[in-house]
Amino acid sequence: MKRQRLLANTFLFIFLLMFIVLPFVPLVLSSFSYNWKWPNVLPEIFSLSAWKYVLFDNSGTWQAIGTSLLIAFIVTAINIILAVPAANALVRYPLKGRWLFEAIIFAPIVIPAFVAVLGIHLTFLRFGLTETIFGVVLAHLSPTLPYVVRAAMTSYNTLSIDWEDQARMLGAGPLSRFYHVVLPHLLPGIAAGASLSILISLSQYLITFIIGSGQVMTLPILLFPFISGGDPAIASAYSLVFAGMAVAALLILDLALKRYYKKKQAAASKGVRE
């Protein structure tokens, strides 16, 4: 039994290595390499010049990271404001034509966003929305909103109306009911939706490119010329920064949520003691 377990463990370990770690090895090596020749498995010269270019020279990386995150957070904030009431309505109210509303809101999950963006591009241009962050935010809304609605719906599904009624009986107004009863319950779902929304927004290339037209410089726009045939070392360094940015944004969200719960818990236990 023990032996079998060891075997299985080893198998899983190798599998993991092949599947997840191996693909990143050349990426990391290449980012630190200088003119890495075939057939050397390791670069003959290690160099920090690609990282220096990406992080410290005049390459605009930090600004692009800032723009990317700004857009992702605005998009996500708007999404949450739009999605929570919509999810509430879809889950807790009798609706005529529910299927139609669901079909409308969830359509962008199936139909790719660039189809709509290429269609609306010239209209955006005429209204002066291209080349603006606002325009790019608008373009990022439809591919992200459905996921936030979906996530908020999952949370509403498990929220009992009784709790809210109890709170009402205790004299809580609609705002305070929402803040103290509904919101804490929805938060994990919203956070999950927000993570998806941030992730999707951060990784958009084509629609940012079309609506931003070179003036809204997000990280994917900056790195694309390098990964499609530019210097491999710089392309690799940028790819790692890009992936790192996505992972970091999600981790921060995760941490913030945990801290919120800790605070809540602390406040609750304090309340009991008093």
Partner: peptide, 8 residues
Amino acid sequence: GGNENINR
């Protein structure tokens, strides 16, 4: 924008 020498 794919050549760092030119960009620099």
